[in-house]
């Protein structure tokens, strides 16, 4: 049995208002704990803001600043610099933002912060849509998925945030999900030991938005990884690629069949999605191989 050894102080508290079985809550529970108590969090409008609790009750044992939707990376910069100015350089600044707040409306300031290599960890809780507003599409919504604003299925592909951020040349970019909890925690902890802009995209299956049973979120996340839809990997300094889960062992169809948002997908669409995933996977493998060949072996974990 693949066992986990986790022993740390909890930072998320019970009593939060996430849906039963919410993977976002589960994920942030571990992410926050991996960061530790000397952390301040930035949470823009998103499901996370609901999880964070209604004033005056917070579900986080660390301070949380909730900025406007589009400004998380800028707000994190402000916090970082204010803390630095007060000689609190050991305090971590972490963003817990949604995909809408990251891929879309908050992308400009994230790109800028990454360019400046601002010293914070940015976690994108990617539930592939604007879920807090009732499940509309974002640029993280995958091809053919049905949302409130793409009732016939989304006509365009998902944006590849990880590659975009890697192309900024920041010290650390990674993907992770709660279905692979040990990997998630390892990456969270690893990120704390790096300085500069670190961006971790977390796949967060949304029970309601994707049409999953309450206890199926982790299974969906695992199927996403096993099918190559959401590869688990790391990119250091924009060039050193490491693949964390090597095998693409499952057809995309298995993954899609778990979710109501793909129920309408035609066999041709499923084939097209499979081809996109295959192509993406092949590209990723090339990058992994290239960084290995050029001697860019990943730094010690």
């Amino acid at each position: 049995m693949r066992a986990l050894a986790v022993g740390y102080e909890p930072i998320l508290s019970s009593g939060h208002a996430a849906c039963p079985g919410c993977i976002e809550a589960l994920t942030v529970r571990h992410v926050a704990a991996a960061l530790g108590t000397n952390t301040v969090a930035v949470v823009p409008p998103s499901c996370m803001a609901i999880i964070a609790g209604p004033q005056p009750f917070s579900s986080f044992k660390i301070p949380v600043y909730q900025p406007s939707l589009e400004a998380s990376a800028a707000a994190a910069t402000g916090l970082r610099r204010a803390l630095d100015a007060q000689e609190k350089r050991d305090t971590l600044v972490a963003v817990f933002a949604g995909d809408g707040g990251t891929y879309d409306i908050g992308f400009q300031c994230l790109s800028s912060a990454a360019e400046r290599n601002e010293d914070f960890i940015y976690f994108c809780f990617d539930n592939e849509g604007y879920m807090n507003t009732g499940a509309q599409k974002s640029s993280a919504t995958p091809h053919f998925a049905k949302t409130g604003s793409t009732p016939a299925g989304k006509a365009s592909k998902k944006k590849n945030l990880t590659e975009i951020m890697a192309a900024h040349g920041v010290p650390y970019v990674a993907t992770a999900c709660a279905g692979y909890l040990a990997d998630l925690i390892r990456k969270g902890e690893k990120a704390t030991r790096i300085r500069g802009t670190r961006i971790i995209t977390l796949l967060v299956p949304c029970l309601d938005g994707w049409g999953l049973a309450d206890d199926c979120g982790l299974e969906a996340a695992r199927f996403a990884v096993e099918s190559g839809v959401f590869p688990l990997y790391e990119v250091e300094e924009g060039c050193r690629y490491t693949l964390n889960e090597a095998g693409k062992t499952r057809p995309v169809r298995d993954y899609l069949s778990l979710q109501r948002r793909y129920r309408h997908a035609t066999p041709e669409e499923i084939d097209a999605l499979q081809a996109e995933v295959d192509a993406g996977w092949a590209r990723l493998l090339e990058r992994v191989a290239a960084s290995r060949e050029s001697g860019l072996t990943p730094s010690a974990k």
């Binding site: 508290s13 009593g15 939060h16 208002a17 039963p20 609790g53 005056p56 009750f57 917070s58």
Partner: peptide
């Protein structure tokens, strides 16, 4: 409007 309390006072067990 600062938030100083904890959600632990909210008993979400009633949902299930």
């Amino acid at each position: 409007a600062w938030t100083t309390g904890t959600t632990e006072v909210l008993k979400t067990g009633t949902w299930r």
